[in-house]
Amino acid sequence: MSVNGKVIPHTPLAVDFWQVRKCPGTRLFFLSHMHSDHTVGLTSTWSNRPIYCSPTTATLLRLKLQVKEKWIHPLELDEPYLLPMDDIGKEKLTVTLIEANHCPGSVMFLFEGYFGSILYTGDFRYTPSMLHSRQQATQQIKEIIRRHPNHNVVIGLYALGKESLLVELAKEFKTWVEVSFERMQTLKALELPDVFTTEPGAGRIRVVEQSKICSANVHKWDKEQPTLAILPTSRPLVPFHPNVHVVPYSDHSSYQELEDFVSALKPTSLVPIVAMWFRDQDDSYRMKNETGRGV
């Protein structure tokens, strides 16, 4: 699995980077969100330095990875915090957590200190246009379901993200959303509305891991009961079955949104952390994890 984290040069800071042997001089560790490609190397045996993150990510960190409580330091969003950068407190920095609009608990970090100002975006979806594309995708999913009133619905998702979509669908179609016991633990930790169940067959909509949406499973589900499979994703997937619907629902910024973000911020420089561009289903582009200096 790829490591989507970074030790920030000329500072003792690391974000989403947990390979301690490769960064012996790092003192402050930050976690932007709980997607697995940002927690590579972080386990229940972590005992090196405090981990700073949002309160929601802190809850998920305890639940998912069983990191010991003493190492988890949740910080509220939009509040500047002064943190020591050495053992004697001679050097300090200010960090502010900013909503990233990516998944529950996801944040950007604004670091300010002797090195200047650094905005570490991680994965994010820039406002204001971000809501428009999500609303379009949600409406498209609702229309697909409405056109098939006698079908059950299976939605393929990763372990974290798009919970608001599930809540909206549950309310729209007045049904329970069936999930696994493991996902239910996460949903309870997030304190979402009571629309989820682990009881098989209790609702018309069921959530599975995205990898479970395959030809064999779709054929099996359809034999038991007419079933739609929906993949809300920005990945360029091609539907492989008439009952499989790929809807471009993204939790990342499009290329235009990235341009708007940079234009608004006017950083003195941009440092890509993962220098890879991905073409989305809607012909937009996104680059994962940028750091903007000189905010």
Score class of each variant (00 low, 15 high):
residue 52 Y to R: 06
residue 58 A to K: 07
residue 99 E to Q: 09
residue 53 C to W: 07
residue 150 N to K: 14
residue 269 S to T: 09
residue 258 L to Y: 01
residue 48 N to P: 00
residue 104 P to D: 09
residue 253 S to H: 06
residue 120 Y to N: 04
residue 101 N to T: 00
residue 94 T to V: 14
residue 171 K to E: 10
residue 63 L to G: 04
residue 196 F to M: 06
residue 183 R to H: 11
residue 62 R to V: 08
residue 95 V to M: 05
residue 244 V to P: 05
residue 46 W to A: 09
residue 28 L to G: 06
residue 111 F to I: 03
residue 82 L to E: 15
residue 263 S to I: 10
residue 74 P to W: 03
residue 113 G to F: 01
residue 44 S to I: 07
residue 151 H to E: 05
residue 103 C to K: 06
residue 266 K to D: 13
residue 202 A to Y: 02
residue 140 Q to G: 06
residue 88 I to N: 13
residue 171 K to H: 10
residue 25 G to P: 02
residue 76 E to R: 13
residue 146 R to V: 11
residue 22 K to N: 15
residue 131 L to G: 12
residue 63 L to F: 07
residue 51 I to T: 02
residue 67 V to A: 04
residue 158 Y to G: 15
residue 89 G to S: 05
residue 48 N to G: 06
residue 209 E to A: 10
residue 29 F to S: 02
residue 238 V to K: 15
residue 156 G to D: 07
residue 22 K to E: 10
residue 142 K to M: 15
residue 7 V to D: 03
residue 256 Q to W: 07
residue 193 P to A: 12
residue 168 E to L: 03
residue 14 A to D: 04
residue 44 S to H: 12
residue 112 E to W: 00
residue 211 S to I: 04
residue 98 I to R: 08
residue 26 T to F: 05
residue 235 R to D: 14
residue 246 V to P: 00
residue 24 P to L: 05
residue 87 D to E: 10
residue 191 E to P: 00
residue 120 Y to C: 01
residue 208 V to F: 12
residue 20 V to E: 04
residue 50 P to K: 12
